[in-house]
Nucleic acid binder design. Structure first.
Lengths: 161, 161
DNA sequence: TATTGTTATACTCTATAACTATA
DNA sequence: TATAGTTATAGAGTATAACAATA
């Protein structure tokens, strides 16, 4: 697994409650997705913790590893209030993983950018996130293609290759 | 979507970083799973918020709706320290959604159980979690079966029906 | 002694509102 | 006037450590 995110812990509760709305197959798929979500978060939090980062800090650092961003844009990506980003970047900056630079085009803007050490940490973080990559290796190319198309359709995306 | 969980916000960052380890197909599946995870959490948090519950509170309430549990068991399910459960159950109890009962078999134990109102809230919460149920309806039975088997294999579970 | 639940403490994330400096 | 970022504040979740009651 690679992307982003936060805490998660438990699986399989509501699904078990008498449901009159969905048949067993659908419920089982829902349950499996719940398990995937749980696994995903555990992997992510664990990988972050290995670098003494919280989930939010790891998300921001990973985001900035792609490109430096204004504080505002970080908030949009994280879907949180801009005021929260101040603290998260403060902590990353205090650890020397991120720095704030002025934006030549707009003096109101501060661009958060990873330091060399921050970039290295982000790369190591990514390599630690093997949740999806490893289990996916057990599927053939045809199966992964199938899974991709099914997930795309489930997410309402175009199914094409 | 039904089960459990917590915050999540952003998708698709680390995946985009130059990866020398996985080919494009696998990375795309990983990205899609990240999107599923994000969607899952948004749905869950939104459903919880509709009942003025936090994600953690909704998780615990949903868990107890299946069966009353000792505080310790709740902590195990949530994968957090038992001391945290005290506060979460406190808040649910203050709202009249949960109550603490003695365990006749062991006087050290307190069983957390949903009140009638708590049970009703848990059921309404479940009904609000349509993330998986609804998009899954767009897949045929054969496709859902396929998705189920692929997810099972990805999670290292037996693939049988 | 070991276990259950709680309390006390400290840190992080979160949203809201008010503030500043720019635009 | 509007926007970017910050500060101040308060609530919630989290872990750690120490505690009382019970086993």
């Amino acid at each position: 697994m690679l992307p982003i995110f936060h805490p998660v812990k438990q699986v399989g509760t509501l699904v078990d409650m008498a449901s009159t709305r969905a048949e067993p197959l659908t419920l089982e798929v829902v349950e499996l997705i719940g398990t995937v979500v749980a696994r995903y978060h555990e992997e992510y939090e664990h990988a972050a913790a290995q670098h003494s980062l919280t989930g939010a800090q790891a998300r921001v650092l990973s985001l900035l590893a792609l490109e430096p961003l204004p504080m505002r844009r970080i908030a949009v990506s994280l879907r949180c209030e801009p005021s929260n980003v101040t603290g998260i970047v403060d902590r990353l900056e205090a650890r020397g993983l991120v720095e704030r630079r002025p934006d030549p085009a707009d003096r109101r803007v501060k661009l958060a950018a990873p330091t060399e050490e921050g970039l290295a940490t982000a790369l190591r973080l990514r390599d630690a996130l093997d949740f999806a990559r490893e289990p996916l290796a057990g599927l053939s190319v045809a199966e992964r293609t199938l899974l991709r198309d099914l997930l795309r359709r489930m997410l309402g995306e175009p199914a094409g290759s």
